[in-house]
Design a binder for these strands. Sequence first.
DNA 1: ACAAATTTTTAGATTTGCCTAAAAATAATT
DNA 2: AATTATTTTTAGGCAAATCTAAAAATTTGT
Lengths: 218, 218
Amino acid sequence: MTRSEENYLKAIFHLSNNGVGVVATNAIADQMDTKASSVTDMVKRLSEKDLVKYIKYKGVELTAPGKLHAAKVIRKHRLWEVFLVEKLHFNWDEVHEVAEQLEHIKSEKLVEELDSFLEYPKVDPHGDPIPDKHGNIQKLDKVLLASCKAEESGVFVGVENSSSEFLQYLDKLKLSLGDIIEIIEKEAFDNSMQIRVNQEQINISALTANNIYIKKNK
Amino acid sequence: MTRSEENYLKAIFHLSNNGVGVVATNAIADQMDTKASSVTDMVKRLSEKDLVKYIKYKGVELTAPGKLHAAKVIRKHRLWEVFLVEKLHFNWDEVHEVAEQLEHIKSEKLVEELDSFLEYPKVDPHGDPIPDKHGNIQKLDKVLLASCKAEESGVFVGVENSSSEFLQYLDKLKLSLGDIIEIIEKEAFDNSMQIRVNQEQINISALTANNIYIKKNK
DNA sequence: ACAAATTTTTAGATTTGCCTAAAAATAATT
DNA sequence: AATTATTTTTAGGCAAATCTAAAAATTTGT
């Protein structure tokens, strides 16, 4: 399996519902910053190898082996991200590019030993779940902060947007995974929020709240 | 710099005297298990980029930037080997294949943090020296065990042959880097040797002795 | 020194992965 | 329903890295 094939499988996995459902050619092209014609080419190759089910003009869907392989690549990506942050002092906004390379290293032993070395982490530094070796991916019960009402609270467990701009903004706000967030007030006019984190109150925009996941307290 | 270009630089580095001296096209082809015509093609490309000095029919030599880049790839290769053995329970005969992949990961920060995480190792699991970040490679004063005489002794510091067959044979003999080796007797007929290691006496062939480096005791 | 052997290079083809431009199919609009 | 707009595919081309077969240069042997 080539690096490029793996990247396509990963893109299709993310665009579909974790590997379930049909994805459009253009959606893949956008995600991968390439042209629709290139996608058509590759999708044919993947189809030959039974990694996707492809129906002309209708779209593409991962097969069971395609889905498994995609999950394994994502597993490696996220494990390496944990390694970079936990062991090599990378910040959470610096890991993506390097993990994009490391995710293609081929060695079963490497992955399993790395998992063990890291003490079997469940999520990556952005709160995304790490698939197990069989490709099973645990669903977390998280909700967008933006969907919550005043007086609700929860634990910051993930981000929707992993761009370094956004992550660095969260650093500036001193907002880290695991922090307890309480919604003090939600402004009806622009959906901005007044929240309490680490004994401090801060104000965040609706856009920001739309990129933060919390696990609600009951 | 592509993966293939890096592999050629590495091969030329190893075939020349650590980057000093001219290497023949066929020698590169043999080393890389490819055809002479492919080597000519690639050598032209590397020459365009000023990574090698190429004179038709005469051979090829690394330039200063070519040599630096080769040394950096070898640095990464050997650091990753240390990581695999020290942190992930790989045996010294299992690391090469994975390190061949990891050596091409591009991230200055990754390399330097890895070096620090491993506490700045000087040699890899086979006793080969790890170049520093400037590409300087430390020469060890080691000699082939085969070149030593009876009653001489030294510390096992490296292997000439890193094939898994040979390394596994050394495992079977319970011979590990750092062990003290004393030559009890050297057989004139076939140059086999009776040696003492770890309070035990064993007999090794001339071929074996030709693949073991020791640092002589004075 | 010159013919034979070896080494190296060139020429032309192949595969992967991408591109542009044009054609075909599907979806949207009036 | 027919036209327009959008999406997708096809056709043809390009660059990297490889190959085989043939030509050119160099080295070796007598």
